Simulated assay, not measured.
Amino acid sequence: MTFEADLKTAQQELTALFAEAHHAVAFTGAGLSTECGIPDFRSPGGLWSQNKPIPFQDFLAHRAARNEAWRRKFAMDTAFSGALPGRGHVALARLLEEGRLAGIITQNIDGLHQASGVPDAALVELHGNGTYATCLDCGRRYELAWVRERFEAAGGEAPDCPACGGAVKSATISFGQAMPEQEMARAAALSEDCDLFIVLGSSLVVYPAAGFPLIARRNGARLVILNREPTDFDPFAEFVARDDIGDVLAPFACPAL
């Protein structure tokens, strides 16, 4: 039966579960990065309460939508450019390094997992990465500094790809945009093969990403949920914890003795 663990109990239970697991997987959401000064999306004052998301089809169809998308992007980047990995990011990187974690599936686009030392081979970015841009037609990569320079020089006009004329977009997945097939397949494989699945800072309401904990549970994995608010998956978990994720994972951020 699921129980709600206090901080000390959550740390003890996680330690025991990691000791027993052979193939543990972490699933991270926006709640992991709030400690780093990056607000989440759905809570009061979150990003979605301030700006309605721009659908992918609108981005493709209307230059005004592309202009607004880049205006918002650069405003957020300016506000959160100093964000550094938190204790949760550091702990997960350490667990990977020690072989106690097989991989990380993330809904986050902030690049903080990589900044904490997580290699690309161990990370599945379901919703893309907001630290660079790509052409939607030819796939060419562009650094954000390049896009910003041209955006500002044109008075807030989004640049097109010089190579093919296609729309340039941050390398993230927008509403209405197809999920990345390769990353979805990698996430499914990790979820099917794991024996411990730990959710960290996700409300588990955005599908298809939110389906991976259920895949893991149906394949016999033990499920743990660390999230401020209740989720629909709480009844299927070994335990849930409402404490700050950085506090819960702080002991795992230190090298094993």
Rank of each mutant, 00 (worst) to 15 (best):
G176T: 13
P85W: 12
R100G: 02
I105E: 00
V90G: 10
D160E: 05
P85G: 04
A122W: 00
L144T: 09
R87W: 11
R87V: 00
R94C: 03
E125H: 07
C135W: 01
A121N: 04
Q177D: 15
D137R: 15
I104H: 01
N129G: 06
A93S: 14
G176N: 11
C194Y: 09
F74I: 01
K73W: 02
L144P: 13
F151C: 05
G82S: 13
M76H: 07
E97I: 02
A153M: 05
D195K: 00
S191N: 07
G99A: 03
T134E: 12
Q107K: 08
A145G: 15
L196M: 07
L123V: 14
R141P: 04
H89G: 03
L126M: 15
E181Y: 14
K169T: 04
Q177W: 01
R186P: 14
I105R: 00
L144I: 09
F197P: 12
S170M: 09
N108M: 00
Q182R: 10
L84P: 00
L196Q: 08
F197D: 10
A189P: 09
T131S: 15
V118R: 06
A115F: 02
G155C: 09
L92T: 02
V168E: 06
E192S: 15
P85A: 02
R94K: 13
N129A: 05
Q114A: 09
Y142V: 02
P162Y: 03
F197H: 09
F197C: 10
A83V: 12
C161G: 08
E149W: 03
K169G: 01
E157I: 04
L96S: 00
W146N: 09
Q114K: 06
L101P: 05
R186H: 10
C135E: 08
E152N: 13
L190S: 09
H127Q: 15
G156Y: 05
G155D: 11
A158V: 02
R148Q: 15
C138P: 06
S170R: 02
W146M: 08
M179C: 11
D120K: 03
A115G: 05
S170Q: 04
C164R: 01
G88S: 05
A93V: 03
A163C: 12
I198N: 00
Y142E: 10
E149K: 15
Y132D: 13
G155S: 10
D137G: 08
A83L: 04
R72V: 02
T134K: 14
I198F: 11
G99Q: 02
A185L: 08
E192N: 15
I104A: 01
F80Q: 15
G117Y: 08
I105T: 01
Y142I: 03
L95Y: 03
G155V: 09
T106L: 01
D110L: 01
R141D: 14
T131Y: 05
E192P: 05
A188M: 13
D137T: 01
A145V: 04
A79Q: 15
A75E: 10
I198L: 02
